[in-house]
Simulated assay, not measured.
Amino acid sequence: MNRMIKYYFIILIFFLSSCKIKSTQSANEDLEIQKIIAIFFEKYKANNTSEAIDFLFDSNSNINKSQIQNLKDKLSSAGLLAGKFNGYEQITTQKASPSLIYYSFLVKHDIQPIRFNFMFYKPKDKWEIYKFKFDDQVDKELEESGKVYFLK
């Protein structure tokens, strides 16, 4: 009986230590991505949209340069129309797997909010931006979600 208790105790310790290692790795990965996002927003706040986009896509060499320039132009004009930047708030984080993570942020401007969506992918040992999108539809989606037919 005493031997069984020791056996279960050893298994419990092994299980708890493996959970701790996994949660520490996950936390470190989340911090790595959050640092990338924070630096992106620092550059965006300084009205340097072009530099912010370059920094974000610097980790992914598979992106077409003309697409990046188009993204820079659209984000720059969207920022001008939305007014002065006043900060950002995280809307959600979704993890499809340990190698694919989605972040959504509400970016606060004087005139209207803009939603930024970041998707990060880790094909080997380094996180890279996989997709970046922005839009000004978050208010319309919020209104739509409050309609009666969604409440049933």
Rank of each mutant, 00 (worst) to 15 (best):
R115C: 01
Y130R: 06
F132H: 13
Y88H: 12
H109W: 04
I33D: 05
F116S: 06
I36V: 00
S76A: 11
I21L: 10
I129R: 00
T92C: 05
S104L: 00
Y44T: 08
I39T: 12
F40G: 00
M4I: 08
T93L: 06
Y130S: 07
K20V: 13
N62F: 04
L100M: 10
E141A: 08
Q25Y: 02
K84L: 10
D110Q: 11
S97T: 15
F9M: 10
K152G: 12
L80Q: 07
E89Y: 05
K95V: 09
S77T: 14
S18D: 01
I101Q: 07
Y102G: 07
L12A: 15
I53A: 07
E128T: 01
N70Y: 11
K133I: 11
V138C: 06
D125Q: 12
K140M: 10
K131G: 00
K6T: 07
I5R: 15
N47A: 12
W127H: 06
K95E: 14
R3Q: 12
E51T: 02
S17V: 05
K84I: 08
K72H: 08
K133H: 14
K122C: 07
Q94S: 13
V107C: 07
N28H: 11
I91M: 09
Y121S: 14
K22F: 13
K20I: 13
L56H: 11
K152V: 01
E144W: 10
D125K: 09
L100W: 04
F105M: 00
R115M: 05
S17D: 04
I63H: 02
K152N: 03
L31N: 09
E29S: 15
A78V: 06
K126N: 03
P98W: 05
K6G: 11
G146N: 06
V107A: 08
F14C: 12
K65T: 11
F55T: 08
K84Q: 14
T93V: 14
K124D: 15
W127L: 03
E42I: 00
L16C: 02
K140C: 05
K65R: 12
I37C: 05
E143S: 09
L80G: 03
Q69F: 09
F41D: 03
K74F: 10
F120V: 01
A27D: 02
A38L: 15
I111W: 04
F14Q: 09
G79K: 13
I5L: 13
S104V: 00
R3V: 11
N62K: 05
A52L: 01
